[in-house]
């Protein structure tokens, strides 16, 4: 507590002016979020005001021109492709993280980490393009048509793998070194030490990473748009062509008018809520990890 009213720590006039300008700039960041929510609601309102919400899941089909707004096939495709991608990416990502933090030599680990970071920087449109020109024809030879729920799942898995691997590695690095050394000193093998001691200690961080990866998979547009085939239908097998919510927006926004456009904003709103719930959950886990 300072006693004199003014001292070298109190803000000068120039400082107070600067603080005011900075406050204004920071406020703009808050305003952008509010604007996004406001405009999503505003553009969805024309249809939300006269079509009850459940009709977006219970109508007979997706024919916005005839006022039929069933989004359940697209929601199913989004959920299935993301869940499948996670099912593949989470074990592979954790194994990747274990490789670079406990199995590889320091030099090799650095190279491998760099490779994962570069993989994270490749644009989604390139993943989609590679899936369309290389992966889908390959799958098509095995089981036509190739562009399907399976190809979308595989490309998504490859895309979210770096997210899982990088967050899992950060969580593993945060585990104190003596945990592993204690376990090793007591005669546990490397694998038993990792499974019994290190991984449980890093659990919250790894779960947070997986939730972030789920958010990324659900929100991904370009890669699934290019490899999923984009037929609006309930998938009955892995080889059926599907259309996700994100792909639907990208495909139809160009010509959508009136209620159709509003319906696309409703799906955008739904996506945003879903993704933000996942990110919020991930943050809560991360907070818990910091607390432990």
């Amino acid at each position: 507590m300072t006693l004199s009213p003014r001292n070298t720590l109190s803000l000068s006039r120039a400082d107070r002016q600067l603080a005011a300008v900075l406050r204004l700039c920071a406020l703009l960041a808050v305003v952008v979020v509010l604007l996004i929510l406001l405009f999503l609601f505003g553009e969805s309102w024309p249809i939300l005001s006269h079509v009850p919400v459940w009709r977006f899941l219970s109508d007979d089909s997706w024919h916005p021109g005839q006022a039929l707004y069933d989004m359940s096939p697209m929601l199913t495709a989004t959920v299935l492709s993301s869940a499948g991608a996670l099912l593949l990416a989470v074990p592979l990502g954790i194994a990747s993280a274990l490789f670079s933090s406990y199995y590889a030599s320091p030099g090799l680990a650095a190279v491998y980490r760099r490779l994962i970071e570069l993989l994270a920087g490749i644009p989604s449109v390139v993943y989609g393009f590679w899936g369309l020109t290389t992966l889908a024809p390959l799958l098509g030879q095995w089981h036509p048509p190739g562009v399907s729920l399976l190809s979308a799942t595989l490309v998504l898995a490859l895309m979210v793998l770096p997210t899982v691997a990088l967050t899992a590695e950060a969580a593993l690095l945060a585990v104190p070194q003596h945990y592993y050394r204690c376990a090793a000193a007591l005669g546990l093998s490397r694998w038993s030490s990792l499974v019994g001691v290190v991984l449980p200690a890093a659990r919250t961080g790894i779960i947070a990473g997986a939730l972030l990866a789920a958010a990324r998979a659900i929100g991904e547009t370009m890669a699934v748009l290019m490899v999923a085939g984009n037929v609006v239908q309930m998938p009955h097998s892995l080889f059926d062509s599907v259309r996700t919510l994100t792909a639907n927006i990208a495909l139809e926004m160009a010509y959508a008018m009136g209620d159709h456009r509003a319906a696309l904003f409703v799906s955008g709103l739904a996506l945003m809520v879903l993704v933000l719930a996942l990110v919020g959950l991930a943050d809560a886990y991360k907070g818990q990890a910091a607390h432990d």
Binding site: I36, T221, A250, G268, L271, D283
Partner: peptide, 16 residues
């Protein structure tokens, strides 16, 4: 707000 902004999917940015 920054946390929320970081989580918004790119297609939603497109809509906005």
């Amino acid at each position: 707000s920054v946390g929320v902004l970081a989580g918004v999917p790119s297609i939603v940015f497109g809509l906005f």
